[in-house]
Nucleic acid binder design. Structure first.
Lengths: 108, 108
DNA sequence: CGGCATCCCTTCCGATACTG
DNA sequence: CAGTATCGGAAGGGATGCCG
């Protein structure tokens, strides 16, 4: 991976279709796979699993497997992931303003 | 466009491959199309033009055409676009930290 | 100079089915 | 429960060529 604009890095880790939502939910509390599924009804298992793998390899979330039957897996925001929270809050704030109707946004 | 996480909005406007770079350069000063081309050697004309259109329709940059021969077109960060600067700075800061070697990041 | 049009490849993502 | 595998469509983006 070549050196590039640091902003790209943030885009990369948050850029998946459901990643911000996942992180936001995990900020509230640790959650199981099935909980995330219920909380994000539109997401497919495939994308949820894939995004969680990516967030994990970016070290933003931790994955804990409890060797029980049935299996239980918990996802949590890592301490490192929490450093992203202020960034997300700022982004969120700007996004809300930009989304406001009356800005000729999203006419289509 | 359905209502979604406001963070997605930021991802959307900054999410093009060269958009952060373009905005960063325009923050410094107004630039012509050909100047941007030289400043971002890897970008193709197609993507530069396309991203500029999108940034324009998101009202982050303004496009000014001088009816001269040869044609001259200047792109500038709009006042509204400048509201994104603090957001970009925070993102940049986090990105630089995350990019740091030792985090198993960006081996190149 | 500052584009647009076309072709093509790659990545992202949804749908569906199957498994330890 | 918590995934993986496979297929196929949609979108992003590169290369090249043409134009006012």
């Amino acid at each position: 991976m070549e050196r590039k604009c640091p902003i790209e890095t943030v885009i990369h880790v948050l850029g998946g279709k459901w990643k911000p939502t996942i992180l936001w939910l995990l900020l509230d509390s640790t959650k199981r796979f099935s909980e995330l599924e219920k909380l994000i009804p539109e997401v497919t298992q495939k994308m949820l699993a894939q995004h969680l793998r990516e967030l994990e390899s970016d070290q933003l979330v931790t994955r804990t497997v409890y060797p029980s039957v049935p299996p239980k897996v918990e996802y949590a925001l890592s301490d490192y992931g929490k450093t992203l929270v202020p960034v997300m809050e700022i982004m969120c704030e700007w996004g809300e303003t930009h989304q406001r109707p009356g800005l000729k946004q999203a006419v289509l």
